[in-house]
């Protein structure tokens, strides 16, 4: 069907592509720690040492855990296996709410306590009108 040269080029391409995919996979695998944007409370529990580097933690804001005292906000971030207390002073994004996703940037005090300097809201992939949401909740 194809000439010898064309066949040779196709073979070469296959080998090159396979090699590139393998190397990219290995690179990404080894960079995994840097690629993740935040770590979960469970991963914090499993940390061997706590250093003073700035990190990001993420998870859900536990229901009925937000306590606002003057300019300080305390809440609990959970991944439904483990949880961690977060304290923060400053303004929070509009979508920050109980039962919603959150990413907090700051410093670990210990395995159960996190001092946030920045709060980001993480929203999920569900989009629907308010009526539909209400109907779903009523069910």
């Amino acid at each position: 069907m194809y000439g010898k040269k064309v066949k040779l080029r196709i073979l070469f391409l296959f080998l090159a592509v396979a090699l590139v995919i393998l190397s990219v996979y290995l690179v990404l695998k080894s960079l995994e720690e840097n690629v993740v944007y935040f770590i979960s409370p469970t991963e914090i529990k499993n940390l061997t040492e706590i250093n003073q580097k700035k990190i990001r933690i993420g998870g859900m804001v536990k229901d009925q855990s937000i306590i606002i005292k003057s300019d300080k906000i305390n809440f609990i971030v959970t991944d439904f296996k483990n949880e961690i207390n977060v304290s923060y002073s400053g303004s929070v994004p509009n979508l920050f709410a109980e039962g919603k996703g959150v990413v907090a940037e700051g410093y670990l005090k210990d395995r159960n306590y996190f001092n946030a300097v920045k709060i980001l809201a993480k929203h999920d992939e569900n989009y629907m009108p308010p009526e539909v949401k209400k109907a779903l909740e009523d069910k």
Partner: peptide, 23 residues
């Protein structure tokens, strides 16, 4: 693959789409 700030994809060919039809 990784935890990101960006939400997961809503429109999927294989699994259920999580955007309401009106949107």
């Amino acid at each position: 693959w990784w935890s990101t700030l960006h939400q997961a994809s809503s429109v999927n060919i294989l699994s259920k789409t999580s955007i309401h039809p009106t949107m």
